Amino acid sequence: MRTLWKGAISFGLVHIPVGLVSATSQEGVDFDWLDKRTMDPVGYKRINKVTGKEVTKENIVKGVAFEKGRYVVISEEEIRAAHPDSTQTIDIFAFVDSAQIPLVNIDTPYYLAPQKRGEKVYALLRHTLVDTGKVALAHVVIRTTQHLAAVMPVDSALVLVLLRWPAEVRSLDTLELTEAVTKVTLSKSERDMAKRLVKDMSADWQPDEYVDTFQDQIMQLVETKAREGKIESVETPGDADEQKSADVIDLTELLKRSLNSKKPRAAESAKTAAPNKKKAAEAPAPKRRSPARKKAT
């Protein structure tokens, strides 16, 4: 797996060389593009949202909304100067109980891979965190952005979890919960029944069973419609020949997937099938390939 960042965990005089590896597939000041000649908003396709005309790169500046309809323009030099220095270290500044970190502050996890000659001290830190029941709070700069993070043990490895800054997490007061929730009266029988239901539904963590089936269902629908001939040809004006070629390629791929998705027919169906279809029914169908999943970044 590709290492995204190399540096060291640092606490006291201890330095542990590590590499950062993404554990998932996956923002700072929100800069909007503006036309510097008119201060009109510019879309990400460099189109002036007011005039509808294209804006060249040299006419685009970055602005931060100060008030509705009013922006403060920030130059690239000012942005670079504001970035924190990249020290290539995960600077631990405190150890806390993991339960003290609110769930809503947890953002993105990364695996920490020990680098050469850092294996023993890496293992020492992991064992120490396990023995003390603590996690390490740290500061780390990744791609010029400073993060609050937690270093914690997971099985035989260490994980760096980027945390949302406390100012980024809204207070529960925003929910405006009423006394119907905060001071509700629950009977003993209601509590007992709820506990019994939880007990009956209790299970072990089974990650292989928790699958997002949306992509599979969509691809099955595409294949079904392709077999039924429900395929639309779309041509771009002025480029009909190129688009036609692309349609053929797409259709070929869909047909391949369709063939791969077919299963062998039952023996009884094969016997009653027409002679010209019997061979195809008896032949084993190729194993259907699952749609490719998004690569972790």
Results as ranks from 00 to 15, higher is better:
88 Q>M: 11
90 I>P: 02
91 D>M: 08
91 D>T: 10
91 D>Y: 05
93 F>E: 10
94 A>F: 06
94 A>G: 05
94 A>W: 06
95 F>M: 11
96 V>Y: 08
97 D>T: 07
97 D>E: 14
98 S>I: 11
98 S>Q: 14
99 A>L: 13
99 A>V: 11
99 A>Q: 10
100 Q>C: 09
100 Q>I: 07
101 I>H: 03
101 I>P: 04
102 P>D: 09
102 P>W: 08
103 L>E: 13
106 I>C: 14
106 I>W: 08
106 I>G: 08
107 D>H: 13
108 T>K: 15
109 P>G: 07
109 P>K: 10
110 Y>P: 02
110 Y>N: 02
112 L>T: 01
112 L>I: 06
113 A>P: 00
114 P>I: 01
116 K>Q: 09
116 K>M: 04
117 R>T: 02
117 R>W: 01
117 R>V: 03
118 G>K: 00
119 E>T: 09
119 E>Q: 12
119 E>V: 10
120 K>G: 01
120 K>R: 08
122 Y>D: 01
123 A>T: 05
123 A>D: 09
123 A>C: 06
125 L>T: 02
125 L>Q: 03
125 L>R: 01
126 R>I: 00
126 R>L: 00
128 T>K: 08
128 T>N: 06
129 L>Y: 03
129 L>N: 03
132 T>Q: 07
133 G>L: 07
133 G>H: 08
133 G>M: 08
134 K>F: 07
136 A>W: 02
136 A>M: 05
137 L>D: 05
137 L>A: 08
138 A>S: 15
139 H>P: 03
139 H>I: 05
140 V>P: 02
140 V>F: 10
141 V>T: 15
142 I>W: 10
143 R>S: 13
143 R>V: 12
143 R>G: 07
144 T>W: 09
144 T>L: 09
145 T>C: 11
145 T>A: 13
146 Q>L: 11
148 L>K: 07
148 L>H: 06
149 A>F: 04
149 A>N: 04
150 A>L: 04
151 V>T: 03
152 M>Q: 09
153 P>A: 05
153 P>S: 05
154 V>E: 06
156 S>N: 03
157 A>V: 01
160 L>H: 00
161 V>D: 01
161 V>G: 00
162 L>V: 15
163 L>W: 05
164 R>L: 14
164 R>I: 05
165 W>T: 09
165 W>L: 13
166 P>H: 07
166 P>A: 09
166 P>Q: 08
168 E>H: 13
168 E>V: 09
168 E>I: 07
168 E>N: 13
169 V>P: 05
170 R>S: 13
170 R>Q: 15
170 R>N: 11
171 S>A: 13
172 L>Q: 11
173 D>K: 15
173 D>E: 14
173 D>L: 12
174 T>K: 12
174 T>S: 14
175 L>Q: 13
175 L>N: 11
175 L>G: 07
175 L>C: 12
178 T>C: 10
179 E>C: 11
